[in-house]
Amino acid sequence: MIEPFLLAVRALGKSVPGPRELFRALDLDVRAGELVAIIGESGVGKSTLLNILAGLDDADTGSVAIDGIVLGELDETARTRVRRERIGFVFQAFHILPYLTLRQNVALPLALISPDQAAASARAEAMLDAVGLGGRGDGYARDLSGGELQRVAIARALVHRPALILADEPTGNLDPETAARVLALFADAVRGNGAAGVMVTHSDASAAIADRVLTLGRDGLVERRGV
Results as ranks from 00 to 15, higher is better:
residue 13 G to W: 01
residue 14 K to M: 03
residue 15 S to Y: 06
residue 15 S to L: 07
residue 15 S to I: 02
residue 16 V to Y: 09
residue 17 P to D: 12
residue 17 P to F: 10
residue 17 P to I: 04
residue 17 P to M: 09
residue 17 P to A: 08
residue 18 G to Q: 14
residue 19 P to I: 06
residue 21 E to H: 06
residue 22 L to E: 01
residue 22 L to M: 07
residue 23 F to A: 00
residue 24 R to W: 05
residue 25 A to W: 13
residue 26 L to H: 03
residue 27 D to P: 07
residue 28 L to D: 01
residue 29 D to K: 15
residue 29 D to P: 15
residue 30 V to H: 02
residue 30 V to S: 01
residue 31 R to T: 13
residue 32 A to G: 11
residue 32 A to E: 10
residue 33 G to F: 05
residue 34 E to G: 03
residue 35 L to A: 02
residue 35 L to Y: 01
residue 36 V to R: 01
residue 36 V to F: 03
residue 36 V to W: 04
residue 37 A to T: 04
residue 39 I to R: 09
residue 40 G to M: 08
residue 40 G to F: 04
residue 40 G to D: 07
residue 41 E to H: 15
residue 42 S to F: 14
residue 44 V to D: 14
residue 44 V to H: 06
residue 47 S to H: 08
residue 48 T to L: 09
residue 48 T to G: 12
residue 48 T to N: 10
residue 48 T to M: 13
residue 49 L to T: 09
residue 49 L to A: 12
residue 51 N to C: 14
residue 51 N to L: 15
residue 57 D to S: 13
residue 58 D to N: 14
residue 58 D to T: 15
residue 58 D to V: 10
residue 58 D to L: 14
residue 60 D to Q: 09
residue 60 D to Y: 05
residue 60 D to C: 10
residue 60 D to T: 15
residue 61 T to N: 09
residue 63 S to T: 13
residue 63 S to Q: 10
residue 65 A to C: 09
residue 66 I to P: 01
residue 66 I to R: 00
residue 67 D to W: 05
residue 67 D to P: 02
residue 67 D to R: 04
residue 68 G to A: 09
residue 69 I to L: 10
residue 70 V to S: 08
residue 72 G to H: 07
residue 72 G to A: 12
residue 72 G to K: 07
residue 72 G to Q: 07
residue 73 E to G: 12
residue 73 E to A: 14
residue 73 E to T: 10
residue 74 L to M: 13
residue 74 L to P: 04
residue 74 L to H: 05
residue 74 L to R: 06
residue 75 D to A: 07
residue 75 D to H: 03
residue 77 T to P: 05
residue 79 R to F: 11
residue 80 T to P: 03
residue 82 V to Q: 00
residue 82 V to N: 00
residue 84 R to M: 01
residue 84 R to I: 00
residue 84 R to N: 00
residue 85 E to F: 00
